[in-house]
Design a binder for these strands. Structure first.
Length: 204
DNA sequence: TCGGAGATGGTC
DNA sequence: ACCATCTCCGAA
């Protein structure tokens, strides 16, 4: 069970987005290994997408990594408080990425509880357990993902995605993306993908 | 359980 | 000024 290869990330962004569902994100940080199954994603494709940070070839210090070839980590700060993690996709110069919006804890859930709430798992209510990783800001907090991960390769040993095939089948849900009402026609693009029925999907 | 309002700071 | 979000608090 190896990690997804660089060639996977360099493929078509919408295919990569769907292909990431059910795979397991691994972060090795400060001696702990945290794992979460990807259950919800959104695609952003700079060339045609007014919601993408890379739209109109906007290449800045923040968006620089989006223009690299697929297989790197793009982390940004949102609302001054929360980090969001993307996987860079496609060819060099393309400016595309997939946002991770929901994870199901697989390993290290006790540490995730500490990271999110500062208290042990056994003290959490049911609703708090679902809230560990069912949103882009929440999952970064739980997994210990910060700006320090910006630009890291997904082909290394510190952060990567396992190339596993789950035994159980799942249906893929499709919808418009969340909180991009400013993006004119792009707001209607159905580029959000999720595992139907999974409780760690952020909404819907 | 649900919805509205406020927090909060990097980026452009 | 804007923003790919979250938490809190009050109403039901």
């Amino acid at each position: 069970m190896g990690k997804l290869p660089k060639s996977f990330y360099e493929g078509d962004t919408l295919e990569v987005a769907k292909g990431l569902l059910g795979k397991v994100l691994v972060h090795r940080n400060e001696g702990v290994e945290l794992k979460g199954k990807i259950v919800e994603v959104e695609a952003y494709i700079g060339a045609i997408d007014k919601a993408a940070h890379s739209y109109n070839n906007r290449r800045t210090e923040r968006t620089e990594v989006m223009f690299w070839s697929g297989g790197y980590v793009y982390v940004y700060l949102i609302y001054g408080m929360y980090y969001c993690m993307n996987v860079v996709t496609g060819r060099e110069g393309e400016g595309a990425a997939v946002l991770l919006r929901g994870l199901e804890p697989v390993q290290g859930i006790e540490q995730m509880s500490i990271n999110r709430y500062g208290k042990p798992l056994e003290t959490l209510k049911r609703s708090q357990i679902i809230n560990l990783t069912n949103g882009p800001g929440k999952l970064c907090r739980a997994m210990g993902i910060t700006k320090n991960n910006y630009g890291e390769p997904l082909t290394g040993d510190r952060i990567f995605i396992e190339n596993i095939n789950l035994k159980e089948e799942f249906d893929i849900g499709v919808s418009k993306r969340i909180n991009i009402d400013y993006a004119e026609e792009a707001r209607d693009f159905e580029w959000r993908f999720f595992i139907k029925g999974n409780p760690y999907v952020s909404k819907g």
